[in-house]
Design a protein around this nucleic acid. Structure first.
Lengths: 128, 128
DNA sequence: CGGAATCCTGAATGATACTG
DNA sequence: CAGTATCATTCAGGATTCCG
């Protein structure tokens, strides 16, 4: 079938697009439900696991751990274990991670400036 | 049970946080898999549905339509129907939508500058 | 041409229980 | 304290079919 070929080609094209489009990679990462919250929390300085857990009230341990692991994997945060009893684990932004902070602030700035318009438009749209 | 109360409180806290945190709203929107691609495509000027479909090769009609509807709902995109035969539908950015473009460029800029470091870190991490 | 409606699957996320 | 492991659930998103 040609449709099958088309689909394969489309997927290949999308993969190629993804590979050469760093912006989509980035959005995949910071668009993550918890990552932005974690980065903002760590922007104030290193934090222990329990600190993060307390500051980001509604995150489950599973998602917190998973998000932190991904951030560590991507070189955006460091994980430091102090083998005391009980164990102490600190997370901190790497320089690369810190370079992300201004961008997050830019996003926050746009949101604070325009998000009410978006919400107004949404409300208008919904009431019809 | 107290755990139940805790969960409810955590959820309420998160909702409150969400409500007062425009940045998360924004990230939910632009972090969407297709939205960034659509906005970039429309940044070049109005496009017909089929144009968008052709430019964003791998998007399904369903997701393209759904994403466009959401963008329209949020006042970021306009939808103009020309009742010819066959129908013609044009999509364009609103001023609000256009105000998003520089932000997208900032995101793209960070990605182009740093994403290779991220990918390098990831590769290093994975090979261990 | 530009969708809408339906069905379906896998991945993301959450809840819960257990551990070094 | 800082997780891991497992199970249950939800839901985004793709495939397919039909329509004005």
């Amino acid at each position: 079938m040609t449709t099958e070929h088309d689909r394969d080609r489309a997927r290949a094209a999308y993969d190629a697009y993804l590979a050469e489009c760093p912006a989509r990679h980035l959005l995949d990462r910071i668009g993550d439900k918890w990552v932005s919250l974690i980065v903002s929390a760590l922007a104030d300085g290193p934090q222990r696991y329990s600190d993060l857990s307390r500051r980001i009230v509604s995150v489950s341990q599973k998602m917190l751990t998973q998000s932190l692991r991904n951030l560590e994997r991507d070189g955006l945060v460091t994980r430091t274990v102090t083998p005391s009893v009980p164990v102490r684990v600190d997370y901190a932004l790497t320089p690369l991670g810190r370079s992300l902070v201004p961008l997050m602030q830019a996003i926050k700035a746009w949101a604070e400036e325009h998000m009410d318009e978006v919400l107004a438009a949404r409300a208008r749209h919904d009431e019809r």
